[in-house]
C-alpha cells in the first residue's frame, strides 16, 4: 500500500521502512513467468523443480527484486524516484513461503540541490533465513 509522500528533510540515517510482507503462490509465480516470457521450469513445474533438488517451485530472481523495490517505493511515495537497486539471491524461496522485506536508511546526501537517500534492504523468509540482501538509492522531493 502506498504511503503519503516522504520528504528528504524527514529522513535520517537509521530511519526504517515499513515492513512489506509477501506470500508468493504457485499462481503468482506462474503469472510472473508468463508476463516475463520466462519458460524456466523450476518456477512453475514442481516435479521438475524436485528433479533439480528444490522442495517446490522457486520464486524468480527478478521477483525478489520487485518485492524489495516495492518496499522502498511504498515507503518513499509516488513523487520519489528510484535511482538504483541491487540485490543478491542468497537463499531460495518457494511458493508458500512468507517473505518479509525490511530496510533502514544508511546514508542521506544532498547533491546539486537534490536529496538522495540510501537504504540497506533485507528479504527474509518465515524461518528468518536471509533470502535477498539488497541496497537502494532513492531521490526524494524536498520541502
Amino acid at each position: 500500500m502506498q504511503s503519503a509522500q516522504l520528504l528528504f528533510e524527514d529522513v535520517r540515517v537509521g530511519s526504517v521502512l515499513a515492513p512489506l510482507i509477501k506470500r508468493p503462490t504457485t499462481a503468482q509465480l506462474f503469472r510472473f513467468s508468463a508476463v516475463t516470457w520466462n519458460a524456466h521450469r523450476i518456477h512453475y513445474d514442481k516435479p521438475y523443480a524436485l528433479v533439480e533438488g528444490y522442495p517446490d517451485v522457486l520464486v524468480q530472481s527478478h521477483l525478489h527484486g520487485c518485492f524489495l523495490a516495492q518496499a522502498v517505493m511504498d515507503w518513499a511515495g509516488p513523487q520519489a524516484h528510484l535511482a538504483g537497486l541491487r540485490w543478491q539471491n542468497r537463499a531460495i524461496a518457494v511458493a508458500g513461503d512468507v517473505l518479509t522485506c525490511t530496510g533502514e536508511v544508511i546514508k542521506v546526501e544532498l547533491r546539486d540541490g537534490l536529496g538522495f537517500v540510501e537504504c540497506q534492504l533485507e528479504e527474509r523468509n518465515q524461518d528468518n533465513t536471509l533470502c535477498a540482501p539488497g541496497w537502494a538509492r532513492v531521490r526524494l522531493p524536498r520541502r
Binding site: 524456466h40 530472481s61 538504483g84
Partner: peptide, 25 residues
C-alpha cells in the same frame, strides 16, 4: 529445463543448470 537454447540473449551453456544470482540496476 524449459529455457530457450538460441534466442537473442541466450547464453551458450548447453547442459548446465542456470540460476540468477543477483542484479545491479
Amino acid at each position: 529445463d524449459g529455457t530457450p537454447a538460441a534466442d537473442a540473449t541466450a547464453l551458450a551453456i548447453e547442459g548446465l543448470r542456470l540460476m540468477g544470482a543477483g542484479q545491479e540496476l
